[in-house]
Amino acid sequence: MTPPTAKPARPFRSVLYIPGSKERALEKAQGLAADAIIFDLEDAVAPDEKVRAREVLAEALRADYGKRARIVRINGFDTDWGRADAAAFAGHAGVDAVLVPKVSTPADLDAVAAVVPDKPLWAMMETALGMLNAGAIAAHPALQGMVMGTNDLAKELGSRSRADRLPMMAGLGLCLLAAKAHGRVIVDGVFNAFKDDEGLRAECAQGRDMGFDGKTLIHPAQLEIANAAFAPDEAEIDLARRQIAAFDAALAGGQAVAVVDGRIVENLHIVTARATLARAEAIAALAD
């Protein structure tokens, strides 16, 4: 069995959507505290603006976006614009990955990979069929990451909006399991009420606790909350260091178990502790 593909070292706490047709927004994004940007040519662009948006974005991505991951969401191949979008950014030096909308089967990725052979693909997970095929999609060799499209999924399911996101749990869980099984990045869906800080904070905490790497965002005002929620805090970093130190001391004494704060610490906890410290280091490196 082939081991899971390693995740990129860079963090994906905050993944901000920016319309590909808005020159001012594209320029402003160069200075925003987002770990990644999704430059959107699909939902955020009106049909009569699609071609112009492609041209505007191709030029804008020649600018310096620093250490932010640059992901372009193309239109679907079932539209008049999808193949031309893919071709335009397949060899673009300013693009780190291409995001494919409404991925329902691995064949959807195959089609794009044939046009974009040299860049990683990301998959929008937003259809019922996509949820059922999440494992096969996550296993695709060109795939680097998955993005939950909870608005489109809710529309397809006919589900109601709830603060606890109960109608979304089956889909979120299936995609999360698939991503973790195959070592892919996975980011949670958007929170639509961009002026509701407490609601966003609660939904970020829920996604973080489930295991998501970060959250997609629709407004720059949401960045600070997402960045804080998906980063280890000082208490977590301190605990990780103390667990590693205690476990190393236990091993030196011929023991395979340590105790920290009244809790058993075994090797599996050390794996998590080291991952916590590595994540904190990657976040610090992004800020340098």
Rank of each mutant, 00 (worst) to 15 (best):
P3N: 07
R13C: 11
S14I: 03
V15Q: 04
I18A: 05
P19S: 08
R24S: 13
L26K: 06
A34V: 04
A36Q: 03
I38L: 09
D40A: 02
L41I: 04
P47H: 03
K50A: 02
L57H: 06
A58E: 12
A60N: 03
A60Q: 10
L61M: 04
L61T: 02
Y65M: 01
I71C: 11
I74H: 10
G76V: 04
D80R: 13
D80F: 09
D80G: 01
W81C: 00
A84D: 15
D85S: 03
A87W: 02
A87C: 01
A88S: 14
A90Y: 09
H92I: 04
H92S: 05
A97W: 03
V98L: 15
K102N: 05
V103G: 08
D110H: 09
A113S: 14
K119F: 10
P120S: 06
W122L: 14
W122F: 14
E126C: 04
T127M: 11
G130M: 09
G130N: 06
I137W: 10
I137V: 15
H140G: 06
H140S: 08
Q144C: 08
M146V: 13
G149Q: 08
N151A: 13
L153K: 06
A154M: 15
E156D: 12
E156A: 13
S159D: 02
R162L: 15
D164K: 08
R165H: 08
R165W: 05
A170E: 07
A179V: 07
H182M: 05
R184F: 05
V187P: 03
V187L: 02
F194R: 02
K195G: 01
D197Q: 13
L200W: 11
A205W: 00
A221F: 00
L223R: 09
L223A: 09
L223N: 09
N227I: 01
N227A: 01
A228R: 15
E234V: 10
R241E: 15
I244G: 12
I244T: 12
A245M: 07
A246Y: 11
A249R: 14
A250V: 06
A252C: 01
Q255L: 13
V259R: 13
V259C: 00
V260T: 06
D261R: 05
D261Q: 12
R263M: 10
R263Q: 15
R263T: 03
V265W: 04
A273W: 09
R274E: 15
A275F: 02
E281N: 05
A282D: 10
D288H: 10
